[in-house]
């Protein structure tokens, strides 16, 4: 009888490599679906936001103002000047925060672009390449390489979140070049060969698949997704909807303005003054 250890070990490594390959393919598919659908959802939201921002922001400001004047009036009638001051401070603070929130959303909405049909088709290929860079445990003992790895994954995530397909393409086509251009330390993405490493890689890949699958599920169950589906089913529907909503908000804002004016008059009657 001939004992050949390579014959004994090989099948297991080979099998694991196949499993890793299968897991990568699955991950690539899920990533593609997620990126496509997320990009559509975000694009729809961005359209909605751009068309309605002005009305909503005005409404939120008016609501804060009415709320503040009510509290101010209340503290005036009670003769509680401390409470009046507090109300004014709270109002200033919430107003600044709300305006900041709208600015932030506007910046995010500006970055959203609907992917073109070609870009969507390209995504599958890109993700097949990108998941090959997935080696979470690989650089654990080399701090500078680990740092590079984190930076790279962060860059991919950011590009994906913004639907920035150019950057995804840049990294997928030439990861080494990308890393070099950023001035980061070099990384070796060759697949591991050792049995224990392969096993670990396969396990983390499975975990990743579960994470992305869950993210995709949550996305598909969200109201944002429902709106996106509706908007895609009926072209022009989103614009009509925004116009209709704008009309409603205009009415609501007029009512709020009236309410705010009435409150200001009452405050004046009581001899109080409010610059706000």
């Amino acid at each position: 009888m001939r004992l050949d250890p390579t014959i004994f070990v090989d099948p297991e490594v080979k099998q694991l490599r196949q499993l890793v390959g299968g897991a990568r393919a699955q991950l690539a598919e899920l990533e593609t679906d997620y990126t496509k659908e997320k990009s559509r959802v975000d694009a729809v939201q961005a359209v909605l936001f751009r068309q309605l921002r002005e009305h909503y922001q005005k409404r939120d400001r008016l609501r804060l103002m009415v709320d503040y004047r009510k509290k101010f009036l209340d503290s005036l009638t009670r003769g509680d000047s401390e409470a009046a001051k507090q109300a004014e401070e709270n109002y200033e603070e919430s107003k600044t925060q709300t305006d900041k929130d709208y600015e932030e959303l506007a910046a995010a909405a500006d970055k959203k672009k609907q992917l073109t049909a070609e870009q969507e088709a390209e995504l599958t290929l890109l993700w097949k390449k990108l998941v090959k860079l997935y080696h979470p445990d690989r650089f654990a003992n080399e701090p500078d390489k680990l740092e590079t790895y984190h930076k790279l994954t962060a860059a991919i995530n950011q590009a994906k979140d913004n639907g920035d397909i150019e950057t995804l393409r840049e990294i997928a086509e030439d990861p080494h070049g990308f890393i070099l251009r950023q001035g980061w330390s070099k990384l070796d993405f060759a697949d591991v060969e050792e049995l224990a490493q392969l096993k670990r890689l396969h396990e983390t890949l499975q975990k990743e698949i579960a994470v992305v699958a869950e993210a995709l599920k949550q996305l598909r169950e969200s109201p944002d997704y429902e709106l996106c589906q509706l908007a895609e089913k009926k072209p022009g529907m989103l614009d009509e909807l925004a116009a209709e909503r704008a009309k409603q908000l205009e009415l609501e804002n007029k009512a709020l303005e009236m309410q705010a004016d009435l409150l200001a008059k009452e405050i004046k009657k009581l001899g109080g003054t409010t610059s706000l």
């Binding site: 975000d42 997935y134 990743e208 994470v211």
Partner: peptide
């Protein structure tokens, strides 16, 4: 370490107030 998507995209990563504004619109 994740290379993968997180459920939080750029808009959702915004402040909780911004998130509330957006989900309110939707």
């Amino acid at each position: 370490n994740l290379l993968v998507v997180r459920p939080l995209g750029a808009i959702e990563k915004a402040a909780p107030g911004a998130k509330r504004i957006l989900s309110g619109m939707v």
